[in-house]
Design a protein around this nucleic acid. Structure first.
Lengths: 342, 342
DNA sequence: TGTTAGCACTCTTAATCAACGAGTGCTAAA
DNA sequence: TTTAGCACTCGTTGATTAAGAGTGCTAACA
């Protein structure tokens, strides 16, 4: 229902607004090399596009800016995904290659690079612990009533926590407990630990361990805590450099959200494999109503482990961002797979 | 060299400016209950105080604001440390008491409370790992060439890192290594680990472990990393609510500093036991030139373990902040001591 | 019938100006 | 020594104006 020319003009406007952050006038468009119509013609088309809801006017004598619907249409139909420059690619390669030690570092580094390349804020959800399985449990006594419990997963992730025993527990009891746990729980997904503990382990403890209730409650607490996903940020303050965010109060609100990992995690998370783009109000979250969020998932052995996200103004460099996100989504997965095979 | 009255007036001006963030005029001061001089008299005194460098004028027809020197004098001689309200105390008590599990949580929670009570930004340096001693080392194989090494200190702190062995290492070798390390290194301060490794352990390895060089380089890397202090923040964005920070660019600069823990750590750190107040340029750091930083140390068993800091505008509620910091400095030390004795 | 030149109109932005008021500094009197 | 009085300074506020960018409409053109 949109004519060829309208498509062309809409694209031109969005492109222009994305780079200049200023309402686009008819003359600006008509001056372009690839367009051979007078401003008046463009104006007529713009007027139509506005009527259809793709454009809006900040005020009657400004140019047009894309509406939310305009961005959406642009993203869905108009946008030509930009080829990543070879400089970008080598940049990424070199920066990711050097840090190759721990999965966690790969993720952190990715967040950083992503934010540097875009000057938006990147948010990466770390591998969910509960997707991975228990490799080993260690209990290291610090004092008579205090020990550190360490949980190592098959992906090499380590969680630790201090436990307090209300009454003294003998060294041999601790040893027994560790043995039992390792025997029975190796290979069990982290999120099932607590359940297994109550159902299977409790009775075994009862048989062999003298102060089994003390141990049990202590362990229960520990398993409770480790079900959350980690959140990594890159360029938290990048968003402040966007001209649309010169109001300190607005900025403060957004920055405060970043402090609440649980909330962010919920916002970013996306079940869909592949790329997701949420524009403005599509985020369904008031403080993000003029922000766009592009997310992609990354995998390990084909299974979902986390999400990478990029948060910027609705006026976002979609073509570039999309290419970048696709690249990262693939590259991180590869990297993690390779690390995993080591 | 300052008369009684001048002291009084200087204090009144600083107090007023601290609460209202606006230049203080002579009339405002003379209206105060406790002052019985006409505006003209006050003006004369103000003029003198300005000449001496304690006050300055934003422009000729505004009131006066304290100069850096003014704040300094106020802090050193004028300020009456405010009694903490009993509400504050109970607030703190209740919020610190509930979270009592891990040292790290105590610190984190302290940072949070401190920022909430003041609406400044709190920065707390975590216990320096290298003050504590090695309790136990664990090496947990994940795959043939990959293991997780876990370092537990006597304070219950856990550090972990993944190590890669370039060539396969046998299980018995790993076991030997762990035994040797635990035998020889228990009780050694963390910061000495690397040194000891090269000096003493290397030769032992050579004797008993087949691929000892592989192990050695892997371990060396691990010990390298764990010498930094952790930095905890509370209310990172609180500073944005101060009226003097309505310029996004300024804010961005400060916020960016918070992302670099090493730098912050260096800035906050203070060797002096007790309270330190650095006003504006005394921080010797450009981006902090109109910020004040109040720091105090906290201890464990009488020994320095970390620093708590509060960062706000030079126009800071010094009386309140000082009391709070003193309180926290004591309370955190107590808390940690008690935890340590458990 | 689609395109475009022309022009009146709208609305923002920047600049200028005057009035206001908060505050100072000085002088002279108490 | 203190203070009343007053002229002066300077930032703030609001109004007014001019400039400029852009639109929308009409009428002419191909």
């Amino acid at each position: 229902m949109l004519t060829e020319r309208q498509l062309y003009i809409l694209k031109a406007i969005v492109d222009d607004y994305i780079t200049n952050a200023e309402p686009v006038g008819s003359r600006t468009i008509s001056k372009r090399q690839d367009i051979n119509f007078s401003p008046a013609t463009i104006r007529n088309e713009m007027s139509d596009l506005e009527e259809m809801g793709f454009l809006e006017k900040p005020h009657s004598s400004a140019g047009r800016i894309p509406s939310q619907k305009g961005y959406r249409y642009y993203v869905d139909h108009l946008l030509s995904p930009m080829q990543l420059s070879s400089r970008d690619v080598t940049d990424i390669r070199s920066q990711l290659a050097e840090k190759f030690q721990e999965s966690e570092q790969v993720i952190q580094q990715s967040a950083k690079i992503l934010s540097q390349l875009t000057s938006y804020t990147s948010i990466v959800l770390g591998p969910e612990v509960f997707e991975s399985k228990l490799q080993q449990i260690q209990l290291i006594p610090i004092s008579a009533t205090q020990a550190v419990i360490i949980i190592v997963t098959d992906s090499g992730h380590v969680e630790n926590q201090t436990v307090y025993f209300p009454e003294n527990v003998s060294g041999s009891d601790v040893e027994k407990v560790v043995n039992i746990l390792n025997d029975r729980l190796r290979g069990v997904p982290i999120y099932q630990l607590q359940q297994k503990l109550s159902q299977e382990i409790a009775s075994v403890f009862k048989k062999y361990v003298s102060k089994y209730e003390t141990m049990l409650t202590a362990l229960r607490e520990v398993f409770q805590d480790h079900q959350q996903e980690k959140v990594y940020y890159g360029g938290k303050t990048n968003i402040l450099s966007q001209p649309e965010f010169n109001d300190v109060e607005r900025v403060r609100n957004i920055l405060n959200i970043f402090e609440e990992d649980a909330l962010v995690s919920k916002l970013i998370r996306s079940e869909d494999q592949g790329l997701t783009i949420r524009i403005g109000e599509e985020n369904d979250f008031k403080p993000f109503e003029d922000l766009s969020l592009v997310t992609a998932t990354y995998t390990l052995d084909g299974k979902y482990v986390g999400t990478i996200g990029l948060l910027g103004p609705t006026r976002m460099e979609y073509p570039r961002v999309i290419s970048l996100m696709e690249y990262f989504s693939r590259d991180m997965s590869d990297l993690l797979d390779r690390k995993n095979k080591n």
